[in-house]
């Protein structure tokens, strides 16, 4: 299959595309869909062709035109989008992409996607019978000050989060205001203010097939970067986390990859966030025998897939730094011609 994959950043803030590509490299022709010539994944030898994509904010027509062009050039048959900011477009136009362009995707519906949004998480958690931290949606710094200085709903420390990206722990009002501007300047509004829950952060990466959990692994991040990206991790066996993943998929009739971010203190689990896509550590699952990107491709092709919910416990994931030396003309080419 000829598959387009987005999210080629592979710096200290890696995107999932490289991990997805590693799971598909042996059997498929891969096309990189990049937003920036600086993305290291472009130069790692994973993709037969790479195309620069218009930013999602440019609009749907540019996006569809670009995919049509890539289809004509490469015979693109499917796309696995991996970035939050572009998912809305892919989800909204998924039927059109398949019908008009012959490009398959494997994604949730718009209503499923919206049910797990950060601002609506508390409601979904309640429906799933699980706890979630108090979360407030903010559109101005005045609201933040009012909540933190004048209200008693939240106590420091608090998490200041972007709707798509970034999350910082603020220990006082000054820090909270700083993070509010830092995130809103880069990613816009709303900003979310969230209660901090103490315990161990555990995560579940899963794949839903029209309401049925068909694959996944549970992990704990052992060490992370300053912005919470995994360095080392370990596979865990947590029946409560698996049950939550199953219930989430069933309740929302979820279709596609997802990541549950939870905090557990050993007694109960709090649901912190649900990402509607593969996480950047997706290759961890592939390496322990649960190749979720390949399962996505099988499902896109209409094949039956055997559920893969078993995996070895206590396998350790180690991320490390690597280097590539390449010709600068490749960078110039993608910058000017928007393809490589």
């Amino acid at each position: 299959m000829i598959i387009g994959i987005s999210g080629l950043n592979n710096t200290d803030n890696p995107a999932p595309g490289v991990g997805v590509a590693k799971g598909l490299l042996e059997k498929h022709t891969l096309i990189g869909l990049s937003y920036d010539p600086n993305e290291p994944g472009i130069y790692q030898g994973l993709f037969s062709k790479v195309y620069l994509m218009p930013y999602p904010s440019v609009g749907a027509e540019e996006f569809k035109q670009r995919l049509r062009y890539i289809k004509e050039q490469t015979g693109l048959e499917a796309v696995i989008p991996t970035l939050d900011a572009e998912l809305y477009l892919y989800i909204k136009y998924q039927k059109e992409l398949e019908k008009d362009l012959g490009i398959k995707t494997f994604l949730p519906s718009l209503s499923q996607f919206e049910r797990r949004e950060k601002a609506k998480l508390a409601q979904l958690a309640e429906e799933l019978g699980i706890k979630s931290p108090k979360t407030y949606q903010l559109f101005s710094v005045e609201e933040l000050i009012k909540l933190l200085r004048d209200g008693d709903e939240l106590k420091f420390p608090v998490m200041v989060k972007g709707n798509y990206y970034r999350a910082y722990k603020a220990s006082n009002l000054e820090e909270a205001i700083e993070y509010f501007y830092k995130i809103s300047n880069e990613w816009g509004f709303p900003i979310l203010l969230q209660e901090v829950v103490s315990g161990e952060e555990i995560n579940y990466l899963g794949l839903g097939n029209r309401g049925k959990l068909v694959g996944g692994i549970g992990i704990k991040k052992l060490t992370t970067t300053d912005i919470g990206k995994i360095w080392n991790g370990i596979t865990i066996e947590n029946p409560t986390l698996l049950k939550l993943a199953r219930e989430f998929v069933e309740k929302t009739q979820w279709n596609g990859a997802f990541e549950l971010e939870c905090i557990s203190n050993g007694r109960e689990i709090y649901l912190i966030e649900i990402n509607p896509r593969f996480p950047a550590w997706v290759h961890f699952a592939t390496a322990v025998g649960v190749n979720l990107p390949q399962m996505v491709v099988d499902l896109m092709e209409g094949k039956e897939v055997e559920p893969q919910l078993d995996y070895p416990s206590q396998k350790m994931y180690v991320r490390y730094v690597d280097e590539v030396v390449t010709d600068f003309k490749l960078f110039r080419q993608i910058l000017t011609k928007k393809e490589l």
């Binding site: 161990e200 555990i202 992990i219 704990k220 052992l222 991790g233 370990i234 596979t235 865990i236 066996e237 947590n238 029946p239 409560t240 986390l241 557990s264 050993g266 416990s313 206590q314």
Partner: peptide
Amino acid sequence: GYIPSLGTS
């Protein structure tokens, strides 16, 4: 000592 459900040692 290792807790399999939490990954803590």
